[in-house]
Nucleic acid binder design. Sequence first.
DNA 1: TCCTCCCTTTTACATGCGTAAACGTACAGG
DNA 2: CCTGTACGTTTACGCATGTAAAAGGGAGGA
Lengths: 345, 345
Amino acid sequence: MTKPLIKTMEELSVAIGVSRPTLSRYFQDSKSVKASTVARIEQGLAQVEYVPNFFATRLNRKTRGIIGVIIPYLNDLFFTKLLQGIEVAAMEAGLTVITQCSHSDPAIEARAAETFMSMNVDGALVAPLGDHSDQAVHLRLKSRLPFVLMDSRPKTMPDVDFVGTNHRQSTGLITEYLCRVGDPPVFLAMPRVNFNALERETAYITTMQRLGFEPRVIGTQLLSENWHFEEHGEAVLDAEFGRGRLMESSILCANDRVAIGALHAASRHGLKPGRAEQGGLRIAGHDDYPLCPYMNPALTTVAQDTDAIGRKAVSRILQIIHGETDSETPELTLFDGALKLRESA
Amino acid sequence: MTKPLIKTMEELSVAIGVSRPTLSRYFQDSKSVKASTVARIEQGLAQVEYVPNFFATRLNRKTRGIIGVIIPYLNDLFFTKLLQGIEVAAMEAGLTVITQCSHSDPAIEARAAETFMSMNVDGALVAPLGDHSDQAVHLRLKSRLPFVLMDSRPKTMPDVDFVGTNHRQSTGLITEYLCRVGDPPVFLAMPRVNFNALERETAYITTMQRLGFEPRVIGTQLLSENWHFEEHGEAVLDAEFGRGRLMESSILCANDRVAIGALHAASRHGLKPGRAEQGGLRIAGHDDYPLCPYMNPALTTVAQDTDAIGRKAVSRILQIIHGETDSETPELTLFDGALKLRESA
DNA sequence: TCCTCCCTTTTACATGCGTAAACGTACAGG
DNA sequence: CCTGTACGTTTACGCATGTAAAAGGGAGGA
């Protein structure tokens, strides 16, 4: 059961009688070696314990076969879904994904970027921290390797590749829906952890104005800077409901996690959000968080196509790597959101 | 703004007039170099663009400063919380964490293990896939480097370090609670994605028997092997409620995500789970999923101490690395669960 | 038989840095 | 003045592979 441990390719080559360079070629692309030799190598490999050294292979190879991903926060299913899309796409392309979480800390984000540069990764995919990100870090990454921003885009970096959701369309879509089948909604803002927070707020306002309604934003007072979205949503609406306000309003939440908190506040105050035909309170979200269908009531929302975003981000990185792009003109890819009509609005 | 790019430590050493070995020492531990020299190095560093090559440093260093983590599934906040605990603890210890997700696929898990061995990581932390994991892979990892299992433990690997929750205690705790303040509960099983599924079921049964009640397990029929727990919980109870059964029962779900599905099924059938004093249906879960307080009704559950598990896993790995352990006697660390009484039971 | 082609081996060098030993240098204490 | 110490430098080698060029060997065709 316990096979002899072989540490270097050199040892392996003498052990199975094949030259080391041939072994090197075999491990990189077995098809570049004659079938009979492949058979001999694999027969020998089956009888020993050996794996090529990751660092030695990467040190001198032209390409690392690695892309680095930075996400700002782990405990959010939106980012795990995005990550999953990326990993699947990368796997299909034969790339190893190294993920680092910045834990909402720009210093950690900077360190992760440093790590990627020191690894000479083939490309970096970054979901930034909003204002908190050190933009110099992003610029440094961009100047040294293929670089694509995801999810949230700083206005101050216009010439960077970006993949995300068209929040003007998505937020506009649900705002229009709410206006069409009931009272025009108020907008429950989210903590300003990234640029999307403001982008959705703006999209809401312009859509309302276009439709001839008066926009109204709430929840901007106690905007903390953390990721406790549910807590925020609940606190804001608990205060409003407690004063007898907004109890029959339409409320569009900046994201689903805020909306989940909002739903809970409603429930605590004996309110039942539902479609307009039933009259009264409506609550809607944004993102299509995986748990939306299981909320009580099930949460109406706009879906972000995280899978498409992940795939596109990877394919764009591959384009840049392969030089199939005019590096001077960055690509801006925005996917549309899709309405998910459920019970809550 | 654009500093000259320096690729090797050699170049750097001539650029700032310090010998390369001294630079090497500086980058590993700046305190091992005289303060005045440190100042000179850092002054020089500020004027150029240089990071030491990750692979070259790891290739020849005695220790990699890396621990590898494998989790089975990303889109589950339990694992992201666990991962966060691990990352924080590792960061404090100065270790880099490389995380790989096996996406419920034993082949991917095996590849991740292979990667870790090829990286010669200082240790590997693995949350396994239950029966689906290839145990040979785990044994191979264990034979080659410090290895600690987390979360879910195969009975067939008794002599391996493990950190997780004492499910006998935790499940017993909530079973006792439910029995004490209302009807003895039935147990709504979860898909058998890992060993915890069965462990909790067993703990439920023995607790019921000890208390002199008749155990009853439901949801074992349509047990698929995927991670769509909410869907499972909802489907099982939808079927039961549809036949007018269990509508005033106490239902202990194998985990919170199953319970979230259960809550939704109840809501769809016009049922309102609540504490026993109100009579009727009760629903409880297990894990203390972050969204539990925001469910309608808020979900009563038992909390797993993911933070403690993550920290302990890292500290155990560090113990093994530093040889402060009798490697022959593996350590089994089980943290107790804590009741979280909310509205649903 | 000879030539050619394809595959493999050999040879040689490169990658960027860790590490250890020997050596040099300056400073403080005796 | 001598000596010990602390810190740096120099020198030399090692790490486990990639890569390129040249050389070798066997099979097939002319």
